[in-house]
Write a protein that binds this DNA or RNA. Sequence first.
DNA 1: ATTTTATATCGTAATATTGCAATATAAAAA
DNA 2: TTTTTATATTGCAATATTACGATATAAAAT
Lengths: 108, 108
Amino acid sequence: MGATKTEHFTDQQNQIAIIAKALGHPARIAIIEYLQKVNTCICGDIVNELPLAQPTVSQHLKELKNAGLIKGNIEGNAICYCIDEKTFDVLKNYFSTIIQTVTNQKCC
Amino acid sequence: MGATKTEHFTDQQNQIAIIAKALGHPARIAIIEYLQKVNTCICGDIVNELPLAQPTVSQHLKELKNAGLIKGNIEGNAICYCIDEKTFDVLKNYFSTIIQTVTNQKCC
DNA sequence: ATTTTATATCGTAATATTGCAATATAAAAA
DNA sequence: TTTTTATATTGCAATATTACGATATAAAAT
């Protein structure tokens, strides 16, 4: 026990959960908001924006990248990061569908 | 070390992270999808829908409720659960803004 | 009153996450 | 070529999450 029982759920359920989980930390939200604010890919500079040590930031960036929320291109000795909208679109559409279905719910 | 440094981030960043985190588990996504499917509040019945023991489901329901994603009303000896769209709206709008900002990004 | 049904809480083991110092890597600058 | 700069990886301690058996609670049914 202790580990998530992913095998009991559908691929789509697991995929949505993985994306949501990656966004489930304020440092990672702060990274996304920074990339949104500068509105371009950023080479370097992310570590200085956050109140966390460099290895910690690197780890958070890796998780966002694994979930498909950001893209990273090597650019010399720096790495250019930017938001990958496609994955945000997946989430947005998923939530939109839920909201639409539920809006006229005959509920308590 | 080990604990999330919430105090370094804004209230909004923490709030979005808390909601996303609550959705970051396939069992909780499955619960949301079940509530969406039946399209009404459900009294009882959720435990039988999931491949997890009753205390585990109860715990997941509590987390969804704490994050504001579902509402629960006591109805006799059962509890009626349903989706709380307001919180999904918060997320949807948040992601919509990100997507809009980023769509014309001059990126790598 | 007792039993059943639905749900919550407690305790705890297994596992995962968070954060960082130390170190590694690899390109750029000197 | 040495140093600097940017980032990743490793290893580990602190903490959090996941899952569930056992047990508690409380209303409904008998």
